[in-house]
Design a protein around this nucleic acid. Sequence first.
DNA 1: CATATACTTGCACAATCCTGCAACTGTTAA
DNA 2: TTAACAGTTGCAGGATTGTGCAAGTATATG
Lengths: 124, 124
Amino acid sequence: MSNTQPKRNATEDDAPTCAGGDHDHQPVKFDDSACERAAAIFRALGEPQRLRLLIMLEARACCVSELAEALSEPLPAISQRLRILKSERIVRSRRQGKHVYYSLADEHISRLVTNGVMHAMEDE
Amino acid sequence: MSNTQPKRNATEDDAPTCAGGDHDHQPVKFDDSACERAAAIFRALGEPQRLRLLIMLEARACCVSELAEALSEPLPAISQRLRILKSERIVRSRRQGKHVYYSLADEHISRLVTNGVMHAMEDE
DNA sequence: CATATACTTGCACAATCCTGCAACTGTTAA
DNA sequence: TTAACAGTTGCAGGATTGTGCAAGTATATG
């Protein structure tokens, strides 16, 4: 027998670690929904334009027109991106008179953004 | 054209990002390429299947067939995903006999993955 | 009420990306 | 060398997603 195989070569007598989806064991500490939720967050962070928005919001809360002007982009585009970020609970909006101010939802997000950009800067 | 917009001490000069300039204020210090690089990393983390792969690799290095079996997915699919992750320098591969073992590239990535999943679990 | 400002949403087009199958390369064993 | 195993890569199809313009809401002011 090929003992070159790491350890497991059973076809299906041994339940896979976290696949399947039939029953939840607890070999893995992450359930499926958390995995998908995390991926959704990462995906929302995965566009340069949205990320730039978040980087600006990390410094301070901004209203839409402010962001649009700073990034030299049409206001609807900014609004769309903020909408996506908000739908993932990455940003939070509060109305103040005529303006709607956006800010990062919590410290976790802030750290995620910072870590990602830091890593990118170090790496290259 | 009275601007009712909130105070913006910065001039109408757009591009607060330093595309070429060096010394800026302290609002945000990041260049465009870092932003795109970071977005690329986030995007790579932004698919549940890839993220699951990374979560497994966070525990220990695995070879492709091992991952394929654990996740009950065809081997080419796993290989494709690993290829994408490797192209972003998120994972690293080392050959050992017949097998190719993959592992997370560095601690930064590991922390990014952990933070993302943690956040997802807390949030929902 | 009417108007201007601030922002949002709908819709169509284009680009991107994921998936699955098949064929190909590389490595070990006989 | 051949055969079998381990991974990789190429190529459509199909779905998801970003973009831009236009029209729609919402709030404040005259």
